[in-house]
Amino acid sequence: MLIGAGVVWTIVLGVAVYATRVKTDAHEEHVGKRLIFWGGVVFPVVVLAALLVYGLRLMPELRQPGEGLRIDVAGEQFWWRVRYRPQNGPEVVTANEIRMPVGERVEFALTSPHVIHAFWIPTLGGKVDMIPGRENRLVLEAEKPGTYRGVCAEFCGASHALMAFDVVVMEKPAFDAWLAAQAAPLPTATGDLARGRDLFLQNGCGACHAVAGIEARGEVGPNLSRFGARKTLGAGALPNTAENVVRFIAETDKVKPRVTMPSYPALPRDDLTAIAAYLGSLK
């Protein structure tokens, strides 16, 4: 496609140079008519037909189903709800980060509960809308391991620009081990971390956020079970550091405007730090 576009661009510019620099006087009438017929009618029709056929021949291949792993992604305001559905093994729920094995066609099922978002990992493929009431499919195959950036590509509200996610592409064995580890129970918090966990529960965080193994089963906000392993906080809003977690909880609306989570400016600094330390330990 790029080569085709390059050839057309060169021809158009060549004709423009020819008309303005080389032969500036008028053509004879029959030459002009012939130019219009061949250059303005036959050439575009043939080129467009060839490109259309070429593109259409690629489409069935692009739309082959995935090879086993399916990942459901829902666009929330303003974060990503991610559910892994491996063929063998339990489902894993997480948020704001997607991991996938290299060299395998992974099928994404894309939905949205309220407004239209678009799921886009520019390095891996085109964007696909997430439309309320519909489930759109996208199959992606990553060719190289690494971390790529994904974004919401359809304006969805005040924090649309702060709705990103990391895509970590891993070797197949590492990915399988990671996925199996996600289903394993989290270690029990002790000492200061236990204080952070208790504050997390006392302040009602569990009403919206789920953390595996404790009385936090809310589904309104992102699942925080492996929060400490994520690279970013608030769907790409900030790097995931303890200091930023404190800031996010205390002034949520300043970090991410119009987000559903309320700010907790009245929480003592000590408590915020303890909660941040606890969340950071969830790996």
């Binding site: 029709v45 467009l48 037909a49 259309l52 056929v53 259409l56 021949r57 489409m59 069935p60 739309r63 082959q64 189903p65 499919r137």
Partner: peptide, 18 residues
Amino acid sequence: VVGVIFVALPAVFIGDCR
């Protein structure tokens, strides 16, 4: 006629609902 043929071409290459 070009428009009609271009509109019909996808049906030649795409055989299912994906």
